[in-house]
Write a protein that binds this DNA or RNA. Structure first.
Lengths: 227, 227
DNA sequence: TCTAATCTTCATGAAATCTTTATATAATTT
DNA sequence: AAATTATATAAAGATTTCATGAAGATTAGA
């Protein structure tokens, strides 16, 4: 039986859209349109996962997140409107398990939900919204990587490249795929720019950048992250 | 051969712009200027992808989308002039695979088309991400082979040869077929190049390359993979 | 605005891969 | 068995692709 998912957003159309796709995927769905409702329903119904918009009436999404987290370990995915709001999240350790920026593709959202549920049900006690590979930790919410505990500063493009690759460890990404997903579809530049970012990433996260152990080059195809 | 793309928009200039870029990219193009035409052409010509404007004469774009979706799974990209988020989401709600807002950059449009086609064709045609034959595993996503668990590095051509042959175990491929499918139809080189790649493949995956057990030579015809 | 950070492009050399060539070996035919 | 044709193999050269450093352009922040 699939876990119940609570959607919290004041925009009814967004809620209906998400509900549509989740129900199509077989999840029972609960809905709240403001922060107060969200907390109330979360306490009474104990959903298996919560999708929470950042901007909410009555009680702000940030506060809802803190409150919920103080009283349970329910998996939580934050919804933010733009990269400007994305920035608000920086430095805030909210304890969310993932975030999605609007406008999002429903396909992606369902995939992320599955991923979070998988992680949680696998009993992996990874910290909030982290992807771990041995020494390397990719902290999604803080937009940074950590190596052996010490944080490493990544530029926006470096981070997105690392994020998309670590979300799919082992999978080979072509330069075009990396550009489209990490740089946006409207990117008009040269494909080889990816190479330079990869090089800079390697300098920051690889023990020996000349002999990369994490980010591997697949000759003629692209790159792949090896966990 | 690239799939045919149907452009549906009542604004001739938009149509011509899109047509220009798609044809430059090698796609055969069909055109419809209103909703009724769109449905008619879609039914008769079965295009591989449809670009559909939201605002249309005769039959509205939304209705066209619903009708088309009810009768086929053709990939669909919505074009919309409105920029409010709800409208974008509405388009997705209908089962469109992606949306583009006007004014759009032709580059972005082509990129999105390619991405949608890639997603769709990856979904159906690819099937399993791994192909197994006893000791040998061909891992499509990782783009490598594994033999008794340990991964074996393959060059691009070696991988493609192995892939096409293992997808059709037992079938004999002529050198020409292998060239066309694995190297591209416009390959201009010498047919015997295949032999060298096969030899290198055998060295990597055969227990005894001199007495091949997997990749067999069919004298006078070509090669065959025996599972 | 100015400054610093980031991103993109370009040029170069190194590395990996591909193709061809030449010769040896094997299979088929006569 | 000899002749003929097809394939295996090794090695050299050509080609493609990648890593890297540096310069210029762009963007973000003070």
């Amino acid at each position: 039986m699939k876990p119940t998912i609570l959607i919290v957003d004041d925009d009814r159309k967004t809620v209906e859209l998400i509900r549509l796709y989740l129900e199509k995927d077989g999840y029972p769905v609960l809905v709240a349109y403001d922060g107060r409702q969200a907390i109330e329903i979360a306490r009474r119904k104990q959903p298996g996962l919560i999708i929470l918009d950042l901007m909410l009436p009555k009680i702000d999404g940030l506060d809802v997140c803190r409150i919920l987290r103080s009283e349970s370990a329910v998996p939580l995915i934050m919804l933010t409107a733009k990269t400007t709001e994305e920035d608000k999240l920086l430095g805030l350790d909210l304890g969310a398990d993932d975030y999605i920026t609007k406008p999002f593709s429903p396909r992606e959202m369902v995939a992320r939900i599955r991923a979070v549920l998988r992680r949680v049900s696998a009993g992996e006690e990874m910290g909030p919204s982290e992807i771990r590979f041995g020494e390397i930790v990719v902290d999604i919410l803080r937009h940074e990587a950590r190596i052996e505990g010490s944080s490493v500063h990544l530029t926006p493009k470096e981070f997105k490249l690392l994020e998309i690759m670590t979300r799919n460890p082992g999978r080979v990404f072509s330069r075009l795929e990396l550009l489209e997903h990490a740089f946006g579809f409207d990117y008009g530049g040269f494909e080889r720019t990816v190479d330079v970012h990869i090089m800079n990433l390697r300098k920051k996260i690889e023990p020996d950048p000349a002999k990369p152990s994490y980010i591997q080059t697949i000759y003629g195809l692209g790159y792949r992250f090896e966990g």
